[in-house]
Design a protein around this nucleic acid. Structure first.
Lengths: 127, 127
DNA sequence: CAGCATCCTGCGTGATACTG
DNA sequence: CAGTATCACGCAGGATGCTG
């Protein structure tokens, strides 16, 4: 991975944020991790909670999200290096500092989206 | 209409939130609108502020984001029905209530992403 | 001025199979 | 158990040209 041009902070904290949480699971993963470390499969199961029509989450996808989160510095990966494999993921300080933001999002979402105020677009999510 | 199963608080408000702000410009549009109504081209110009390498924003894209935001109920479209066309976009009550959330995001982003703490992944944004 | 119509491309996401 | 490898697809998003 070549090139490393200077990054003009421009006005993009929002853009960086969007990139950081891009993906369907990143926010939920961080949120689920707020209560403590979780293993790969625990995270996986947690992501399926409350979702009916949702097919299984492709391991490739979850793996990528976790790597991305680790690279961003929100979570930390702990490999116990044993067999059978045991790996735990937990929040970093940065990740913990981010939890309140998610809390704010959830709070707002609960007030304005949590009810039945869903429109066509959202239904397909749950359908 | 397929079932509207009770939304178990699960992680759905977050999912709805993600869908609501999906797209590169939605958050910034809402943010730029917090100070008052803006016209189409004003929004367009505003989105290019501070971005050098960024090519022009495709009208198709911006148009779509605005429609989505309107459909979500975050912004309102005011067509003056005159020639030459004049259209203004402004926040709805819902949209205004959402501004603090963006503020929280920006605040956090400024602390943790605003500096030079960008890694490879983010660089391509500015590149 | 504020869009819409069309084509095209990359990536995010899902599904399936395999491994250390 | 915790992933990686591969194939395939839909859709966001950019580029260009045109219109009421």
């Amino acid at each position: 991975m070549p090139k490393a041009p200077p990054s003009p902070a421009c006005g993009c904290p929002v853009a960086a944020f969007q990139k950081m949480i891009s993906g369907k699971y990143k926010l939920r993963i961080v949120w689920d991790l707020k209560d403590g470390a979780l293993r790969y499969s625990a995270i996986r199961s947690g992501l399926l909670r409350g979702l009916e029509g949702t097919p299984e989450i492709a391991p490739r996808v979850l793996s990528r999200e976790l790597k991305a989160l680790a690279q961003t510095g929100l979570i930390d990966r702990k490999d116990f290096g044993v067999v059978p494999p045991k790996v735990e993921y937990c929040l970093t300080a940065k990740g913990r500092s981010f939890v309140p933001v998610i809390a704010a999002i959830r709070k707002w979402g609960a007030s304005h989206l949590g009810g039945e105020a869903w429109n066509e677009s959202e239904k397909q999510i749950a359908a």
